[in-house]
C-alpha cells in the first residue's frame, strides 16, 4: 500500500477529555503568565556589558598564582577547608541520623511512633541549611564550625529518611531469631539491624557527602567557612580573574569527588 503524507491516527472526540485538557493546560499557562507578570525587569544595567566582558576575560586568564598560594589565604587551604566541612558535617549527620531513622522505622518502633519520627525527619529536611548556617553563625561566630553544624543538622533530614527506608525493607528473620534467643534490644540493634543495613547506610552517607560538598561551597557565601568566602569577596570587589579561578577549581573538585564517591558507591551496593 502506498502511503504518502503525514502519519495520522484517528482519535474519537471526547468532550470530557478535551475539557480536562483545556483546564490543565490553561491553568499551567495562567500560572506561568502570572509568574512572568511579577518579575520586575529593570532593564539591563548600563554596566552589564562591561561586567560580562571583564568576567569572560577573567575566565580566559584566571588568577593561577592564587592556586599556588600555600598560605592560609590561598586557594588550596580554602578547598581543603571546604572538603573538611563536608566530611565532618556528613559524618556528624550520619551518626545522628541513626537514632532518628530507628524512630521513624515502622518495623522497629511500631506504626504510631514511626509516624512521629517520620514527621520530625521531614521537618528537619525542610529547614534550609543556609538558614541553619546563619543561625549557627550568630551563635558560634563566622567560620568553618558553623558550617559543620549546619550540614550536620540539616543532613539528618535526608539521611534519616533514607536510613529508615532501608531499615524498613530489611529481612526481619535475623532480628526475630536473635529476639527468640533472648537478645537485648541493644544486641538486636548491633548484631541484626546495623550489620544488615550498613552497606546501604554507607552508600547513602557518601551520596549525601557529594551533596554536602556543593552545600559547603555555598555556605561560605554567607560566612560559614570554605571556598565560598573568598569567592563572594572576589565577586563583590570585582576581581574577576580570582573569581574565575575559584569557580573553575570548585567545578573540578566537585566533579572529581562525585566520580570517586560514585565509584565507591557502585562497589558497595
Amino acid at each position: 500500500m502506498e502511503h504518502t503524507g503525514p502519519i495520522s491516527v484517528e482519535k474519537p472526540f471526547d468532550i470530557y477529555r478535551t475539557l480536562y485538557r483545556i483546564v490543565n493546560y490553561g491553568g499551567l499557562i495562567a500560572i506561568i503568565l502570572w509568574g512572568f507578570a511579577g518579575i520586575e525587569y529593570k532593564g539591563i544595567m548600563q554596566t552589564a556589558r562591561g561586567t560580562v566582558e571583564a568576567l569572560l576575560r577573567g575566565f580566559v586568564r584566571p588568577d593561577v598564582a592564587y592556586l599556588t598560594t600555600m598560605t592560609i589565604d590561598g586557594l588550596p587551604y580554602a578547598v581543603l577547608e571546604t572538603i573538611a566541612i563536608a566530611v565532618a558535617g556528613t559524618f556528624t549527620s550520619g551518626i545522628l541520623a541513626i537514632p532518628f531513622a530507628l524512630l521513624a522505622s515502622q518495623n522497629i518502633v511500631g506504626p504510631h511512633v514511626s509516624k512521629v519520627g517520620k514527621f520530625i525527619v521531614t521537618a528537619i529536611r525542610s529547614f534550609p541549611e543556609l538558614i541553619l548556617a546563619l543561625i549557627f553563625i550568630s551563635i558560634v561566630g563566622p567560620g568553618a564550625p558553623a558550617g559543620v553544624l549546619a550540614l550536620g543538622i540539616h543532613s539528618i533530614g535526608m539521611l534519616g529518611k533514607l536510613f529508615s527506608e532501608s531499615i524498613e525493607s530489611m529481612d526481619m528473620g535475623v532480628k526475630e531469631a536473635l529476639e527468640s534467643c533472648g537478645a537485648s534490644p541493644f544486641e538486636v540493634l548491633f548484631r541484626a539491624v546495623i550489620p544488615q543495613v550498613s552497606p546501604e547506610l554507607i552508600s547513602y552517607t557518601l551520596y549525601r557527602f557529594e551533596i554536602n560538598m556543593r552545600a559547603a561551597a555555598t555556605l561560605g557565601l554567607v560566612g560559614a567557612g570554605g571556598i565560598g568566602a573568598p569567592l563572594i569577596f572576589a565577586i563583590r570587589t570585582r576581581v574577576w580573574p580570582r573569581a574565575a579561578i575559584i569557580v573553575i577549581v570548585l567545578v573540578v573538585t566537585v566533579t572529581v569527588i562525585d566520580a570517586v564517591s560514585g565509584r565507591i558507591r557502585k562497589r558497595l551496593v
Binding site: L231, I235, V247, L250
Partner: peptide, 21 residues
C-alpha cells in the same frame, strides 16, 4: 550542574544588579 545556584546568583547580581531578575 556542579555550580551551586547561590554561586550563579551572586555572579548574576554582580552583572545585572540586585533583584528578582
Amino acid at each position: 550542574r556542579t555550580i551551586p545556584a547561590m554561586v550563579l546568583a551572586s555572579l548574576f547580581v554582580a552583572v545585572f544588579g540586585t533583584g528578582a531578575f
